[in-house]
Design a protein around this nucleic acid. Structure first.
Length: 153
DNA sequence: GCCAACGTTGGC
DNA sequence: GCCAACGTTGGC
């Protein structure tokens, strides 16, 4: 099992929205960055877990955990001319944007803010703290466990 | 293939 | 709302 971090703007889609989607969860659509796409398409497996991170909001940070339930999904928004994520260069036969389905696992007991994460030397190599803008990113097992330890403090 | 112009992300 | 970082586009 591998670990990841998924960013979402809570005004658009929050962790609470994911919880409300119950067992069905949601298709992680709208990613239009190739590096993030490659991770979604090639690296993430069913059974992996991901931190759910709230970005572009008052208190950016990790708010919950989600589970990956399906991979290899053609991003439906990329084929929908009405969507702002529509990509005319993508087609069902030659899809450009492949993504995953996630469900809520559990909310963290408290928000672990970006500010707090920055204060820990053990996390200094985190992609989140070094390549700030990547919206889908790996988290090492050590980082994952360290952050879950912070939750209890 | 270089690189300037431009667009987007996201913290503050 | 500002702006740094960085990804994408397109002319040459």
């Amino acid at each position: 099992m591998k670990f990841w971090l998924l960013k979402s703007e809570p005004d658009a889609f929050s962790y609470n929205d994911l919880e409300n989607a119950l067992n069905k969860g949601t298709v992680w659509d709208g990613v239009r960055n190739y590096q993030a796409r490659n991770i979604l398409r090639d690296d993430i497996n069913v059974g992996d877990k991901a931190f759910f991170y709230h970005s572009s909001c008052k208190e950016p940070g990790i708010v919950g955990i989600c589970a990956i339930t399906e991979t290899g999904i053609i991003d439906p928004s990329s084929l929908d001319p009405a969507s702002k994520y529509y990509d005319p260069k993508s087609s069902p036969d030659n899809p450009r944007w492949i993504t995953i389905n996630v469900v809520a696992d559990r909310a963290l007991r408290r928000v672990i803010t970006l500010k707090e994460l920055r204060q820990h030397e053990a996390l200094s190599e985190m992609v989140l703290l070094n390549r700030g803008r990547l919206s889908v990113q790996p988290v090492s097992k050590e980082e994952w466990e360290y952050i879950l330890g912070l939750e209890k403090s």
